[in-house]
Every structure is written in structure tokens, then in C-alpha cells.
Design a protein around this nucleic acid. Structure first.
Length: 822
RNA sequence: GCGGGUGUGGCGGAAUUGGCAGACGCGCUAGACUUAGGAUCUAGUGCCUUCGGGCGUGGGGGUUCAAGUCCCUUCACCCGCACCA
């Protein structure tokens, strides 16, 4: 629509009020704010603080689309609202700028990812400015800036020093054809997304963060957070705490043994076989010579399956017998040891005791391979299916006759006594795979020495900068492209002369976003991550708004780092984000996702041009509740613009002077609706119910149109109420009302509760629950008087004539309900 | 399968503790103004109706003087997790 005949704009000039020139007005105030540094935050300890945070974006090449600003508008409204309420507001923005797309783009075009990123950031920033966001750009952070990632690296070193960062052999997606390791999302159906080459699981030495050590605290501290319950549940499920027992099984005829984890140690007498995950380290050593070939064949088959496929193809159980047996510590029976991929190496101990009578998966497997099934809990029919319900224990020796909870307790006590097991808590949460074999990320500040030791880079040498290079192609060895930059990789200890090699892995995109909310508070501090006094004043974040797609990973990782920083005394709060809000999505017309391929992406630049930034802001808030997914509607957008036109016509005459209705003292006409509006808008902004706040503002304007005049006090109050939503329009009207300078810090209007109620109220009278009449009565009427008045009413008389009155419920201020029969 | 959520006019959505369902906007209808109207202003707009009224918040049942709201049951859709021992 920006190309060609330009008819779109001609159309819109006719469609909308010509005297409300949004392009001029919006530009004028953007310039004013910039020239006067209106939104620069100066910390005033005398004021209460408010920290409104958005999830900062990845600056992609595509720029913003209309879905992006939804949450940003909401936090901006809250920020502008709080400023007027006398808060010191911290409302910053920054860039999560490391990440794969820039690296891919650089590979494709031969450009430097840093240049590409800088260009994208400039576009995002321009777009945000044009939407009138009140960010303090002096506090902008950029995760790819060495001054910023100096501290990301510093945090890594603290993790390393505390034993929370370690190296381990982890299976990764290795693509031999591309010579690189792929992220899970780059692997589709076992093939590489780029080129469709085969991908295999291959163990490599990786950095891992010990987040599991914080699992309990991450779980417990959720309780006190003001987050959506569904999101807290997602985190709880992700952490997946599970109580049970760990017990040891001896392998018959060998010195070896293996541990299993079970939540049902009480069913131990029903364990008729054991299963190891294919990757279990005992697999090789216990397999008997006769079974070697079968086991090898099975392992080959499994290796080609990705994690996803292994779970997808869940219908049929597969497995192979090792030839070895374990001994059931309770019954003394021999249990064949099998290998099957329904047991995951990454959960528990990677091995299970199978109780087919009381576990659906074990039951299926036992049926498939003809393994024995022994009932130990009565109540089901194990001929037909596994019984997982409650029941009395049978065939279980000393557990016979007990119920589930008692049996669990007693079995654990017995295991402990016999030295064969113990109580154990297991988590679904796994340690965090932290290294990436990529160029465009924070270098991990570790040096591997030729004597086999490794050390962290000295903190005084940070930041360890990412070397600029023209060649960021994969090294081909599975190492990151940094491995090719010999002058960077190779180091010599100046004191001992020992040679070493820098870690070539880089950090994942999550790293920089784990702590950015801290840096906004003290963005230019070169001596420490954050000044402790400032941290104490500004934390926790009062409101954090972002998409639900980050419900688990980002929010869990950031909480983890925050707790580590708490432990080392950097911050004084246990949690970073006290209150969190997930905004919904904006869908294209037809309720489909906006996407390039569908061609239904709406670019905010176009709307800012055609309708104005204020229209876009108010429309996105008026569409519906912030948390809901909503369909974009051009008609709805026009409606929002019409509302602004309506305001403009009320406040401004054709010749640009202050509207002729505006001015003077109140004659009482608008008192009630004005005070209601102040009350509702104030409460709604506080609770982020911006859609209903706007509807109340519309009600007020409708009433103004019906009134002869709008007193100055109400006109000014209204402009203040509008200003967080439509800041440009509000500034312009504020000026028309005769004020100089910005409206930003003008105190928020208050309401007079006495003006909210009339002297008389309308009361509905129901007969048998149906409204049959309305009464106009004094607001302070008593219950008895109300009842009398209702029964005396003509319409009511008509309805109850000849009937027996069973009961009359009269509630002053609400209604009267008369129960009559006959 | 497990966990969480949502179902209200033609459409987006409002409705404190259970107390007049449908605020506000879009759309639609009529009138006014007008050379003109996709502008503006005013009024109307849940459905049915024999004009008395009746029926209405996904369906069925219940509690209550009173249910969109509470309880039971059922259906549909959405989100997350998914062989987690």
C-alpha cells in the first residue's frame, strides 16, 4: 500500500477528521520528548519506585509487527500512569541480540553479524520511538556489547567457581555433512533443516549448569509470586519433583549392580524384570556373549532415533534381552535384565525395576515379550490390564495387608535397614546444557591447559571479546568456528610458559537474557555488575510483561541465576520478578497466525502513518483483555481512530482554538460520570484492564457530547486519564488547554466518592425472580420502607393480585424479590 | 493420557460477595445535515411473539427467593507436558 497510486492515504484523509493531523502532532511531541529528555529517569529516593519491565526482543531483520507492541503498550501505560502518581519509574528497553538468525544470515551473505545486528536494532528503535514509548534510552542494554557481556562472563565464572558449571559428555545433534552441531529446532524428522542431511546423536564434551541443585528452591519460591497460576503450574511440572526410593539391584554372577528409582517401592515383590536405558553404562558389560549381536543391533536402531521420535513412536514397545539377571532384593527371585528405549537415560537412574501388574508401560512390555506378571496390589484384574489404583498388598511378604501409603513407608524402612536402598527425590528437570558450537554468542571464559587442567580467565581480563573475523563457517570438527582463529584460541601463560587453548564453545542465547533486568538498574557500571544499593532500591521488578512462550525456559533460567546471585550477595531478593503478566497474541484476520507466507502481517509503520501511533496504541488495548489472543480488525482500528477524532472535535474548534464547549465551572451535569470515570480508569490501569478503562473513557465523551459544556476541571482530568494511552494527543490537548511543557509529570486526578451516588436510586422489583417493575427510591431507604414501597407499586399489585405472598426479600440499594404463588 | 484454560447477540467483548445479562466498540436500520457521503450528529438494534408475554450466557441436571457467576455431569475448542518409573 505504500507503493503505487497512494490512494490508500487519500481515502483515509476523507475517512477521518482532517483537522486532527496525527502525523504532525505525533512528530512534534516525539521531538519535544527527545529534546527535553522527558523520560530520562533521575533516581529520587524520596519517591516510591516502580520498575516496569518488558521482555526485550531479539532484533530480527523483519522489524516489529503489530503483535510485538501489545505488551510494550501495556507497560508503557502503566509507566506513564505511575509517573503521574508520583512514582520514580524505571522503564527501559534493550536487545537480546545474540542468536542463530544473525549467524545464519552472516553465513549466507558473508556479512558480519555485528553489523547486521546493529542495523536491525536501529530499525527496532525507530519503530518503538514512533509508537511513543516512554523508554529511558540512556539505560539501553545490548547483550552483544562487550561492556554488557563482560558481566555475563563474570557470572559464568562465579558459577564455575561454585561448582555450578561443569563439563560432561552429552549427546548432541551432530550433522556430519554440515560438520556442525544443530539445535533441536534445526532438526526436522531426523534431518537437518538446512540441506536435509542426516543427523545423528553423538556424545560431546559440553558445559552444563547445575540448575538441579536449585530445583527445590525454584519450586518452593514459586508460591509467593504473583504470577498466573497456569504458568506456575507449568514451572512446577517442568521441575517435576517426584518422591520415592532408590534401590540397588545386584547383577547375578557378577560384582556389578545398578540403581533404580521408583515411586512405588511398595510393589517391590511384583518386580519381575528390570530394564536399562539403551545408553546405560552397564549395557556393554552385562550383556552375555549369546545376546551380543541382538543387543548391538538394537542399539544401532535406537541411535538413529531422535528424542522426539522415541517418544512419538510410543505405541509399540521395543527392547532386547541382555542375557543377564538381577536379583529381587525382597523376593529373591531372578529378574531378567532387558534394554528398552521406553526407559530414558536422562531420568532417574536410567534403569527401572518393572512391575508389570501395576504399571501400564511395564504391563505392555511384559505382554509384548511374554514376561511374568505378578499381582501385589489387590483390586484389579491383571489378566486384562495393569492396576494402578489403591488396594491391599498381596504376595508381598511383610507388606501383605497394608494400604499404599503404609506399604511405601514400611518398604523404604526395610530397604534402609537391609542397606539396599533409601528414600530419594528425583526431578524431571535436568541440568542445563549451556554450550553452543557457534560463533555469535558470548565466549566462555575458560582456558584448557596442555597439562589437562582448566582455569577460568582472570576477572581482570574480562570481557573476553569475541574476535572479529571474516570466516565464521563451521570448523568441521564439531567445535565452534572460534577454533579456526588460531591467534585467539592459543594462549601461553606468561608466568609458567605453559600452553593452553581457549574454550571455543559460546553461551546460548538464554545467557544474556538471564540477568538484563539487573543491568538496566545500573547500566554503565564498569566496576561491578550492579551497585548493591541500587539493586536494593529497585528490586524486585514490579511488573514483567511478555509472551507465554517464555513460561518455562527463560523464566526458570533467570530465576536460577538470580538465586545464585542472591547466594553470593549481589542481590537481596530471592526472586527477580514479583509480578508477571503474559500478554496474548494478535492474530491476522480470519484468526490465523500472522506470517510472511500468508501475507497477512501488519506492519506498525503503516498504521502509524495511516491512523497514527495513538490510534494503534488505543486500538490494541481496546481489542480485548491483555492476556487473550485477539483477531486484528481493520474496522476496529477505524473505530478507535473515530474515537480520537471525536475527542479532538470536542476539544478543538475547526480553526484550532480550544473547543467552544470547554471551560468554566461545573454546573453538576457531568459530576457523576466524571468521578466514575476517574475511579474506574484508575482502578483499571492498576489491574491492567485497559479495555474497560477505555470503554469508560468513551462513556465520558458520549456524555460530554450530550452536555452543553465541559468544565475546565473535567476536561483537564480527562486529558490526564487519556495521556498514558495516547500520549501525543494528550500533550497536544494539554497545550490547547493553556498549559506549557509536558503532561508527563502532572499529578493524576482524584475523584470525590460523594459524587458517585445520586440521592435516589433505581431499584428493580422482581416477582418470582423476574423483573416486573422499577422503583425510584431514596438511597438511604430502610429495608422495611423499601418492601412497603415495592408492594404499593401499581405494576407490582397487578402481578401479585390474587396470589399468596410467601416471602419478600428486600435489599436496599439492590433489589426486591417477591415470591408469590397461586 | 496428564495438567491448565476458554465457551455470553451478526462480530470483538462487559458484568464487585450469587442480586436488573449484553456496558463500550464494530456492524446493521432509520432520521437529520448535505452537491455528495465509506464524514458528522441523533435514535434504535439478543431471539421469538397472537404484543399479554415467552425464551435466552456450549448441552443436561442440581442448590437458592435469586445462578453467566456455586455444585455435579457432558460436549467442543485452545495452550503446556507427554513412556518421567
Amino acid at each position: 500500500m505504500l507503493s503505487g497510486d497512494g490512494s490508500f492515504f487519500i481515502l483515509n484523509r476523507r475517512k477521518f477528521n482532517m483537522s486532527y493531523k496525527h502525523l504532525q502532532i505525533e512528530q512534534k511531541w516525539r521531538d519535544y520528548w527527545k529534546d527535553n529528555e522527558t523520560f530520562k529517569m533521575t533516581d529520587d529516593p524520596a519517591k516510591p519506585k516502580f520498575y516496569a519491565l518488558d521482555m526485550f526482543p531479539y532484533p530480527s531483520g523483519a522489524g516489529l509487527h503489530v503483535g510485538h507492541p501489545l505488551g510494550y503498550i501495556a507497560t508503557d501505560i502503566l509507566s506513564q500512569f505511575k509517573r503521574k502518581q508520583g512514582y520514580n519509574v524505571l522503564h527501559p528497553m534493550g536487545w537480546d541480540a545474540f542468536g542463530l538468525p544473525a549467524e545464519q544470515y552472516a553465513l549466507d551473505t558473508g556479512n558480519d553479524p555485528a553489523e547486521f545486528t546493529a542495523k536491525n536494532i536501529a530499525t527496532f528503535k525507530r519503530q518503538m520511538d514512533e509508537l511513543g514509548f516512554s523508554y529511558d534510552w540512556d539505560r539501553e542494554v545490548n547483550t552483544t556489547d562487550p561492556k554488557y557481556y563482560k558481566w555475563t562472563q563474570w557470572i559464568f565464572i562465579q558459577l564455575y567457581k561454585r561448582g555450578l558449571a561443569y563439563m560432561d559428555e552429552v549427546a548432541v545433534n551432530w550433522c556430519p555433512a554440515l560438520g556442525t552441531v544443530l539445535a533441536n529446532e534445526e532438526v526436522i524428522d531426523g534431518k537437518s533443516e538446512r540441506g536435509g542431511h542426516p543427523v545423528e546423536r553423538r556424545p560431546m564434551r559440553q558445559w552444563v549448569l547445575r540448575i538441579t541443585e536449585y530445583a527445590d528452591r525454584l519450586l518452593e519460591d514459586l508460591d509467593d509470586l504473583d504470577w498466573p497460576e497456569s504458568l506456575k503450574d507449568m514451572q512446577r511440572n517442568w521441575i517435576g519433583r517426584s518422591e520415592g526410593a532408590q534401590l540397588t539391584f545386584a547383577v547375578e554372577g557378577s560384582e556389578q549392580s545398578f540403581d533404580v528409582f521408583t515411586t512405588r517401592p511398595d510393589t517391590i515383590f511384583g518386580a519381575t524384570y528390570a530394564v536399562l536405558a539403551p545408553e546405560h553404562k552397564l549395557v556393554d558389560s552385562i550383556t552375555t556373549p549369546e545376546q551380543k549381536d541382538a543387543v548391538a543391533a538394537y542399539l544401532d536402531k535406537v541411535k538413529l532415533k531422535s528424542d522426539l521420535e522415541r517418544t512419538d513412536l510410543a505405541k509399540e514397545k521395543t527392547g532386547v534381552f541382555t542375557g543377564a539377571y538381577a536379583v529381587n532384593p525382597a523376593s529373591g527371585e531372578k529378574m531378567p535384565i532387558w534394554i528398552a528405549d521406553y526407559v530414558l537415560v536422562s531420568y532417574g537412574t536410567g534403569a527401572i525395576m518393572a512391575v508389570p501388574a501395576h504399571d501400564e508401560r511395564d504391563y505392555e512390555f511384559a505382554k509384548e515379550f511374554g514376561l511374568p506378571i505378578t499381582e501385589v496390589v489387590a483390586g484389579g484384574d491383571i489378566e486384562r490390564e495393569a492396576y494402578t489404583g489403591e488396594g491391599t498388598h498381596v504376595n508381598s511378604g511383610f507388606l501383605d495387608g497394608l494400604g499404599k501409603d503404609e506399604a511405601i513407608e514400611k518398604s523404604i524402612a526395610w530397604l534402609v535397614e537391609e542397606g539396599k536402598g533409601e528414600k530419594k527425590i528425583t526431578y524431571r528437570l535436568r541440568d542445563w546444557l549451556f554450550s553452543r558450537q557457534r560463533y555469535w554468542g558470548e565466549p566462555i571464559p575458560i582456558i584448557h591447559w596442555e597439562d589437562g587442567t582448566m582455569t577460568a580467565v582472570d576477572e581482570s581480563e574480562l570481557p573476553l571479546e569475541l574476535p572479529v573475523t571474516g570466516d565464521i563457517r563451521p570448523s568441521g570438527t564439531g567445535e565452534s568456528p572460534l577454533a579456526n582463529i588460531t591467534e585467539w584460541v592459543n594462549v601461553v601463560d606468561p608466568e609458567t610458559g605453559m600452553k593452553g587453548r581457549r574454550e571455543t564453545n559460546t553461551m546460548p542465547q538464554w545467557a544474556g537474557s538471564c540477568w538484563y533486568y539487573l543491568r538496566y538498574i545500573d547500566p554503565k557500571n564498569d566496576d561491578m555488575l550492579i551497585d548493591p544499593e541500587l539493586a536494593e532500591r529497585w528490586l524486585p521488578v514490579d511488573i514483567y510483561v511478555g509472551g507465554a512462550e517464555h513460561a518455562v525456559l527463560h523464566l526458570l533460567y533467570a530465576r536460577f541465576w538470580h538465586k545464585v546471585l542472591y547466594d553470593i550477595g549481589v542481590v537481596k531478593t530471592k526472586e527477580p520478578f514479583q509480578k508477571l503478566f503474559n500478554q496474548g497474541m494478535i492474530l491476522g484476520e480470519g484468526n490465523v497466525k500472522m506470517s510472511k507466507s500468508l501475507g497477512n502481517v501488519i506492519n506498525p509503520d503503516d498504521i502509524v502513518h495511516s491512523h497514527g501511533a495513538d490510534t494503534l496504541r488505543i486500538y490494541e488495548m481496546f481489542m480485548g483483555p491483555l492476556e487473550a489472543s485477539k483477531e486484528w480488525s481493520t474496522n476496529g482500528l477505524d473505530g478507535s481512530r473515530k474515537f480520537l477524532d471525536r475527542i479532538w472535535r470536542l476539544f478543538v474548534n475547526e480553526d484550532g482554538s480550544l473547543g467552544s464547549k470547554i471551560g468554566g465551572e461545573s454546573d453538576g451535569t457531568l459530576d457523576k460520570v466524571y468521578n466514575q470515570t476517574v475511579k474506574k480508569v484508575t482502578e483499571d490501569f492498576e489491574g491492567m484492564h485497559n479495555n474497560t478503562a477505555i470503554s469508560q473513557l468513551m462513556v465520558f465523551i458520549n456524555e460530554c457530547y450530550k452536555a452543553d459544556r465541559v468544565p475546565t476541571e473535567f476536561a483537564e482530568g480527562f486529558v490526564l486519564l487519556m495521556s498514558p494511552i495516547t500520549p501525543h494527543l494528550a500533550e497536544e490537548l494539554w497545550e490547547k488547554l493553556g498549559h506549557e511543557g509536558t503532561i508527563t509529570y502532572v499529578p493524576w486526578p482524584t475523584y470525590d466518592a460523594d459524587k458517585l451516588v445520586d440521592d435516589t436510586v433505581e431499584i428493580a422489583v422482581q416477582i418470582n425472580g423476574k423483573v416486573r417493575a422499577k422503583l425510584e427510591v431514596d438511597k438511604d431507604i430502610t429495608k422495611e420502607e423499601l418492601e412497603k414501597a415495592a408492594l404499593a407499586n401499581e405494576d407490582v399489585q397487578k402481578w401479585i393480585d390474587g396470589k399468596e405472598l410467601k416471602k419478600v426479600i428486600a435489599i436496599p440499594g439492590r433489589l426486591v424479590n417477591i415470591v408469590a404463588v397461586g
